[in-house]
């Protein structure tokens, strides 16, 4: 199998180019260029739907004298962003050996509030108390980003009303339920002047006057007056705006998304390369007795063609094992 469509002298000189224009606590804006539309879009899709995080999945209500129905409250609890740092060390409950849930596959949070004053009382995410039996002391903590330090509003209590419940937060992906999405939104844009005519702008008199220019309009050459349509042109520069829901830093959403996509591809390579003994266990549903991702596919990694000369200052020592080594790229210590 010495067929390599992209054999080249200096691999780092080709391939996608990234420019980060903004990086903060809430969002990262970056441009991906020298890449295919399919590549950029798959990265976007995987960041939206397939990065594992943690969210409340089971609620046991002991006492509820509020005006809200139990299931209404349970639904609101599910949507509260929880800190996902260290979620890679948390098992999926379906893969765990326990009966239903345990500290290896879940985080327990309790909520107990009673309105004893004579004012209406707000119960917020900060009132959710995670138990100390968890794999690290940040995993599953409610995310609080507002200045008052309250977190998301769960419900309100009138004088005398109370709520007492227990939540089990589990690991999952947004493909199963959107509450596991690490991103609040992902902006994805290309071709700000619509030179490729991938969209038809609706207008009354003049689309130029009625549509505000994109913030990236200055980054690309506007079309010349009377310029003929280029039938061979393809999208090449993609502008991402990754906004976190709070569960992980926005920078991490991007690196994790890349890892998830690499792991998917590595699984395919593995299963096609040595069929017979090959038993790549993709995630398997538990009622069939399938194993988790801890099958036998992690012991043999192949090295990416790019990996070994990534010895720049960024990738750490000798990086380059694929996802079924330890880290998909870079050294084992993660990013340097």
């Amino acid at each position: 199998m010495d067929y390599d469509p992209m054999a080249m002298d200096d691999p780092e000189s080709l391939g996608p180019v990234v420019k980060v224009s903004e990086s903060g606590k809430v969002r990262v804006k970056f441009e991906l260029s020298n890449a295919e539309l399919a590549f950029a879009n798959s990265l976007r899709r995987v960041m939206l739907a397939e990065i594992p995080t943690i969210a409340i999945d089971l609620v046991e209500i002991e006492e509820n004298s509020t005006v809200l129905a139990d299931e209404f409250i349970a639904h609101r609890l599910g949507l509260i962003p929880l800190n996902a740092s260290g979620a890679e060390n948390l098992l999926y409950s379906r893969d765990c050996d326990c009966d239903e849930y345990c500290e290896n596959c879940s985080v327990r949070l309790t909520l107990h509030a009673k309105c004893t004053g004579d004012e209406i009382m707000s119960v917020c995410a900060r009132d959710l108390v995670p138990s100390s039996e968890r794999i690290n002391q940040t995993l599953g903590s409610p995310i609080i980003t507002d200045e008052a330090g309250m977190g998301s509003l769960i419900l309100k209590l009138r004088p005398g009303q109370s709520i007492k419940l227990q939540c089990i937060a589990k690991k999952g992906i947004a493909k199963e339920h959107a509450k596991w999405a690490p991103s609040a939104a992902i902006g994805f844009e290309y071709d700000p002047h619509n030179k490729l005519h991938h969209i038809d702008l609706w207008y009354e008199q003049d689309p130029k006057a009625e549509w505000p220019p994109s913030e990236y309009a200055d980054w690309e050459e506007p079309p010349q007056e009377g310029e003929p349509f280029d039938y061979d042109a393809v999208a090449n520069r993609f502008y991402f705006n990754v906004e976190t829901s709070g569960s992980m830093p926005p920078q991490e959403i991007i690196t994790e998304g890349i890892k998830v996509l690499q792991t998917k591809l590595a699984g395919l390579i593995h299963e096609l390369s040595d069929e017979g003994d090959g038993d790549y266990n993709g995630p398997r549903s538990p009622e069939f007795g399938g194993g988790g991702v801890d099958g036998g596919w992690q012991d043999q990694g192949y090295t990416t063609p790019y990996g070994n000369n990534a010895g720049g200052s960024w990738s750490g020592p000798g990086g380059g094992t694929t996802p079924y080594g330890q880290t998909p790229y870079g050294g084992s210590g993660g990013w340097q």
Binding site: M1, Y3, D4, P5, M6, P11, E12, G15, P16, V17, V18, K19, V20, S21, E22, S23, V28, F30, L32, A35, F39, L43, Q251, I254, T255, I258, K259, L261, Q262, L265, A266, L268, I269, L272, S273, Y302, T304, P305, Y306, G307, A310, G312, W314, S315, G320, T322, P323, P328, Y329, G330, W335, Q336
Partner: peptide, 27 residues
């Protein structure tokens, strides 16, 4: 062909990850 395309993509993604990390540090 399928396998080598997968391998190409894995390495392109790795490259993208390193590029992102590098650019992020600069930013």
């Amino acid at each position: 062909a399928f396998i080598s395309t997968c391998k190409l993509l894995v390495s392109q993604l790795g490259h993208t990850g390193r590029e992102f990390q590098k650019e992020l540090a600069l930013r």
